[in-house]
């Protein structure tokens, strides 16, 4: 039954088919949203509103199944709306799921793609890496978190990667240190630089560091600027960022951008950036 046969879905909202706690502050929701699921592509996001009159928050699509008509989102409790959302249970519903929005991820020409996920950025990374894997690209992943309990989606990523390396700040699991340090040690084992490509999703300081490391090594890299997005539909310009000397909007021109063209110094100066950093610090 197509979703638009004369009874507004907004009456009932978008049903939560499952909810799973991934870390003490992170939840995975599978939502019934056939309309969104059918058009979704890796790298895109949705705008979610939990209650009538509530704020709109952009959330990256962590998985989608066009056949089943479902969209998966991973939500970290960082603000009032994400807390409200995380309080919902299976069988409940969110009011709106608007999307898919943003430009889909486009791989460059790398034969080997290393996906880097910081904190709950692993959720946004997963459909991108899976898409590449399905397209026959050799994929690897490096996951980073504060401690073992904040590390997510390792098992899922193993299913679509030939290698998954995990790092924790405290060494409670995997490599002790930052994802960039892990990347630097991994690179010499990967052979020809010209065949490599990096995709990083995570807190802004992590992506900035990945941009610096890959630039130095001459490896193409893309980063997701969804931490700075505001309304998600390109009408406010609140998420503007200079990329390659040109002002772009993260929500509609992105969220993925060439990491080496992004003016991170400018992003740091902007208010939103500090918020993103705080969120990263609070939640690992």
């Amino acid at each position: 039954m197509p979703p638009f046969h004369d009874t507004p879905h907004t009456c009932t909202g978008f049903r939560i088919l499952s909810k799973e706690r991934l870390t003490p502050v992170t939840n995975r929701f599978v939502l019934e949203a056939p309309w969104v699921a059918r058009a979704a592509q890796p790298g895109q996001f949705v705008v979610v509103r939990v209650v009538e009159g509530g704020e709109r928050i952009p959330v990256t699509i962590a998985d989608f199944d066009a056949q089943a008509g479902t969209v998966t989102i991973v939500v970290q409790e960082v603000g009032r709306t994400s807390r409200l959302l995380c309080a919902l249970q299976k069988g409940g519903a969110v009011l709106d799921v608007v999307g898919p929005l943003g430009e889909p991820f486009r791989a460059l020409k790398g034969k080997v793609v290393i996906g880097i996920g910081g904190g709950f950025g692993a959720a946004a990374l997963y459909p991108i890496v899976r898409g590449l894997h399905q397209a026959g690209v050799m994929t690897e992943a490096i996951l980073g978190a504060r401690t073992k309990e904040f590390l997510i989606l390792e098992r899922e990523l193993r299913g679509v990667c030939r290698e998954v390396l995990s790092c924790t700040d405290d060494g409670s699991y995997g490599f002790k240190g930052l994802v960039t340090e892990c990347l630097t040690t991994r690179l010499p084992q990967l052979g020809a630089r010209e065949e490599l490509e990096v995709v990083a999703v995570g807190p802004m300081p992590m992506m900035r560091a990945v941009a610096a490391v890959t630039a130095k090594q001459g490896i193409p890299a893309q980063v997701s600027l969804d931490p700075i997005m505001v309304d998600g539909t390109g009408m406010c310009g609140g998420c503007r960022v200079t990329v390659g000397g040109e002002v772009k909007f993260a929500c509609v021109d992105g969220p993925m951008f060439d990491a080496h063209q992004v003016d991170f110094a400018e992003l740091v100066r902007r208010n939103k950036m500090y918020k993103a950093e705080e969120a990263a610090l609070n939640a690992g």
Partner: peptide, 18 residues
């Protein structure tokens, strides 16, 4: 609905909005 941006130096400073 997309606001045109003048592409001028300093455009991303705080206190500048569309």
């Amino acid at each position: 609905s997309r606001p045109s941006m003048p592409q001028l130096p300093g455009e991303s400073l705080k206190g500048i909005c569309s």
